[in-house]
């Protein structure tokens, strides 16, 4: 593997990462914000531009690589994680990102997504979750809430949605985070954190589709309501939220409970203190379920980040082990070393 000399690395700006292709998402689409935050933070990804690869599947989200002035591969529906796996395994020095959507990675590409997580592939997956199929003009997605009325569910959906964070954690991702398109600074922070993570980094971005699912995240983004509905996760800090920072979360056994910090009975000392690096997944699992529990705020931030060997690391280590035992392969070893006879 080549060693990088970051001192000699050019000083990039956001512009260096913008390709010359016109961006063609609908006006007001949350994807613009994701693109802007990625371009703004890419200079801090610690990687030479030519070593960055963006891979995508199909969907609005998956046009993303065209707009990045890095190497890019616009794949087929659902297969981005599998394509990215091939890229990363043969050239471990590359920093490989996947731009995908809720349909692309949680429906048609669900298998590749969970297995990339399970194997702890050293790739970074940014999932644009708008809870709708945009490119095909408005059918429900695997993250649409139950009962959702869409073109393909005129009487409401009857199926239950996936919880992407829960799924990623359960499948074995080692960096799991959520952010919102309308939280640029927060998103930048998550992207930088993901860029330096070793192993599968998963960021779910709540992204508004202005055409087919406008306002899906309004309670989390409207000035008047967001502070009561969004819980910012910070390592080592108590889970506190609300306009006046007057609400907290405490754990009652395994049950999360909202407490009023001004009721005279509770204080911030009763609150659950967030530990991003908890190797035990129990608390992360409880946190991921907040969105499925009524009256709980929606956590954004890093749910969990743990340290585990990556698939690539283990693979190439094995190659080195075999090489040290058998010696590097050559044609004669390949063909003449066993069970031959002379005529």
């Amino acid at each position: 593997m080549e060693t990088k000399n970051l001192e000699l690395k050019p000083k990039y700006t956001a512009k260096d990462f913008a390709s010359d292709v016109d961006v063609k998402w609908c006006p007001g689409c949350g994807d613009y914000s994701i693109l802007a935050q990625v371009q703004r933070t890419a200079p801090d990804f610690g990687e030479l531009k030519e070593n960055i690869v963006w891979v995508s599947g199909i969907g609005c989200s998956s046009r993303f690589p065209y707009y990045m002035n890095t190497y890019g591969f616009h794949g087929i529906h659902g297969r981005a994680a599998a394509i990215a796996t091939g890229v990363k395994l043969v050239n471990p020095k590359l920093q490989v990102w996947v731009a995908t959507g809720d349909g692309d990675s949680l429906s048609i590409g669900g298998n590749h997504f969970i297995h990339a997580c399970r194997k702890n592939m050293d790739i970074k997956i940014v999932l644009f979750n708008n809870k709708i199929y945009g490119l095909t003009k408005g059918q429900y997605s695997p993250t649409s809430e139950k009962g959702k009325i869409t073109k393909s569910s005129p009487y409401g959906t009857v199926d239950f949605p996936f919880n992407a964070i829960k799924l990623a954690d359960a499948a074995g991702a080692t960096f799991i985070a959520r952010t919102i398109d309308r939280e640029p600074k927060h998103m930048q922070d998550m992207l930088k954190r993901a860029s330096s993570h070793k192993g599968l980094a998963f960021i779910e971005v709540y992204q508004n589709c202005t055409i087919f699912n406008d306002g899906a995240y309004a309670p989390l983004t409207d000035k008047n309501t967001k502070e009561d509905n969004v819980l910012y996760l910070e390592h080592g800090k108590p889970l506190v939220f609300g306009k006046n920072k007057d609400k907290g979360i405490k754990l009652d056994g395994l049950k999360p409970v909202v407490i009023d910090l001004n009721d005279g009975k509770h204080s911030v000392n009763d609150c659950w203190v967030h530990d991003e690096f908890d190797n035990d997944s129990t608390r992360g699992f409880i946190l991921s379920r907040f969105i499925d529990i009524e009256n709980m705020p929606t956590p954004i931030g890093v749910f969990r980040q743990i340290n585990k060997p990556t698939y690539g690391e283990e693979y190439w280590k094995q190659v080195q082990d075999v090489k040290s035992k058998k010696g590097a392969g050559d044609y004669n070893k390949l063909m003449f070393s066993m069970n031959t006879w002379e005529v």
Partner: peptide, 21 residues
Amino acid sequence: FQAEDEIAGISSGIGASFAGA
């Protein structure tokens, strides 16, 4: 790479070729 399915088998192969293998 023993892939999770046939589609991942070929897709990872395409990714590997893109990356120069």
